Amino acid sequence: MRPIQFDPFGEPVAHGTDHGAPSSVSRIALRTGVGLFWAMVVVIVAARAAYFNPNFAEKFGSVASLIGHLKTIVGA
């Protein structure tokens, strides 16, 4: 006798729903998606390395100091 299995919401799962192994179309779709994901990762990392600007962080520092000056002027 098989033990009763439950879904995440606590409902018993029917025994007749055996999905079996994934189909070849499902495997192809999965591999295509994974390949596309990692290709995008490589492209994004390569673009960030090629167009890296070391002065990028300084822009945020100047914006933060501007906001600090505006707060002192407004009196907040």
Rank of each mutant, 00 (worst) to 15 (best):
P3T: 09
H19M: 07
K71S: 13
G20L: 08
P54V: 11
I44N: 06
G20I: 06
T17I: 09
S65F: 06
T72C: 00
A50E: 08
M40L: 15
G35F: 08
W38T: 03
F37E: 00
V63Y: 10
A14K: 01
S65T: 15
P54T: 06
K59Y: 14
L70I: 03
I73A: 09
A29I: 05
G16M: 04
H69V: 08
A49D: 06
A64C: 05
Q5V: 09
G20D: 04
I73T: 06
I67E: 10
S65E: 15
R27M: 10
G68C: 00
H15N: 03
F6E: 00
H69R: 07
F9T: 05
N53L: 11
V74L: 13
F52Q: 01
A57R: 07
R31S: 12
T32G: 10
V63H: 04
M40W: 13
R2G: 07
P8V: 09
T72H: 01
F9K: 01
L30M: 07
I73G: 02
V45Y: 08
P12A: 02
F60L: 09
V42E: 04
H69L: 08
A50I: 14
K59R: 12
F60E: 09
G75M: 01
E11G: 01
D7M: 01
I44E: 10
K71G: 08
F9I: 04
V13R: 06
T32Q: 03
T72F: 00
I28C: 03
A29M: 10
S65H: 05
L30Y: 12
N53Y: 09
V74Q: 04
M1E: 11
A14E: 07
G35A: 08
A21D: 09
V74R: 07
S62H: 11
V43F: 15
S62F: 15
R2N: 13
R48A: 15
P22D: 02
R48I: 11
G68T: 05
A57N: 08
D18M: 10
S26K: 09
P22T: 02
G33S: 11
F52W: 14
S62A: 14
T72N: 04
P3C: 04
A14I: 02
I44V: 15
M40Y: 12
